[in-house]
Design a binder for these strands. Structure first.
Lengths: 222, 222
DNA sequence: CGGGATCCGTTACGATACTG
DNA sequence: CAGTATCGTAACGGATCCCG
């Protein structure tokens, strides 16, 4: 029965907001961009969100064709982005770039999960990747694992441990955000807050090159 | 007294949404991108929005440094974007690109004003402009006037009549949106829905070149 | 235990009326 | 013209309960 309020205007911006403008919706897409997730996983990442709201938003997103619910092995239900939903990447990235311009509030809480880094990192890397790059990197951020893959000029960043990474990065979340926002100099970050463990010489150099290019692209855009 | 609900998370996306995520806020920025506007002008463009809400949103935007209230000549108050507020351009553009992927709803209303085209058009043109372009174009869309200026590799689109345009375009809004969304072939649009009146030969060709490049950039991105 | 559904107090929104 | 005040309604937030 609940029909959300819509603008219903002949304007692409309003049309987008009618799909993703409700509270929490963009944060759901943000978390799903890192890969499929279960109801409880999403709930954990979206701290403070009521379960009935999460249900309602997921239902709406399914209806709009942005996500699907799939039954993975042993009956576990997972939600994941559709091809259309993945197209929200650059929108989420611009949102992150815009948000980075504001000083973080005083009483700020750490997010329930770090999946937010996937979409931002992937979008930034995609802007600076060169077609010859080809590697798999493992990313460890405050203990959470991500996999960054560069191949044939395209980059993906997904939640989950890399199987046979060519190189591994160990970072903490807060310095990453600070560097991205421009509150910490890039040299400081790369020198003091990024531990690199290479497994395939040559590939590591590529990975370091990509990551630092991406970060300075972000810095310059500000 | 009213403290709006905020996420307050250490995540750039959430930080952006804490500034511009409330209902109507992004549509206000959208309209202001076309240039300064008065309270009643905004209200007219944002059909259906309650006046107290508009007041509240404007107050919040001022507090966050995205807009300012200025006293123009004869005591008329106008709101206008700050430099920080103008940085929302690419965000609004990505929103428009994303919204264009959805079929327009059945019972859709025309927007209260066409100022929405300024931000989208400017962002698209900026992506394809060449440094040598230098002209002033008048844009007439369903009777509303806009001015497109290209100079030194940068493009601006503002509401208001051009003083001495090198070229003038006459369009209707609906076909423009349809072409932008990909529902109408570009050739159809440029051939049948765009009237061009040139005043400075050479300059007109530049303008036509820029406009059609911008539109095909949009079409290809989809 | 994961994946929700139900209920209820609180807040934000939408419409209209009113004022400097 | 540029808002403020009021008020009914819809959405949100938190907790609890239910079902496989």
């Amino acid at each position: 029965m609940s029909k959300p309020k819509r603008y219903q205007l002949l304007c692409p911006i309003a049309r987008a907001l009618d799909r993703v403008g409700d509270r929490w919706t963009l944060l759901i897409l943000r978390d799903l961009y890192a890969g499929p997730a279960r109801f409880s996983g999403l709930k954990a990442g979206l701290d403070g969100m009521a379960t009935n709201l999460l249900t309602a938003r997921l239902k709406q997103l399914v209806a709009d064709g942005l996500i699907t619910q799939r039954r993975a092995e042993f009956g576990v239900r997972v939600y994941e982005l559709t091809e259309l939903g993945r197209k929200a990447r650059d929108l989420l990235f611009e949102l992150a770039m815009f948000g980075g311009r504001f000083p973080p509030d005083d009483d700020i809480k750490p997010p329930g999960s770090l999946r937010t880094i996937a979409v931002t990192l992937e979008a930034a890397c995609q802007r600076v990747v060169t077609p010859d790059m080809d590697f798999v990197a493992g990313l460890h951020v405050d203990g959470e694992r991500f996999t960054l893959t560069a191949k044939a000029g395209s980059v993906t960043v997904r939640a989950g441990e890399a199987e046979a990474p060519d190189v591994e990065f160990f970072n903490e979340y807060e310095p990453m955000v600070a560097a991205g926002d421009g509150r910490m100099p890039l040299e400081d970050f790369t020198a003091n807050h990024m531990r690199i463990v290479g497994h395939a010489p040559g590939k590591d150099a590529e990975a370091v090159q990509l990551l630092s290019s991406a970060m300075s692209w972000i810095a310059e855009a500000a």
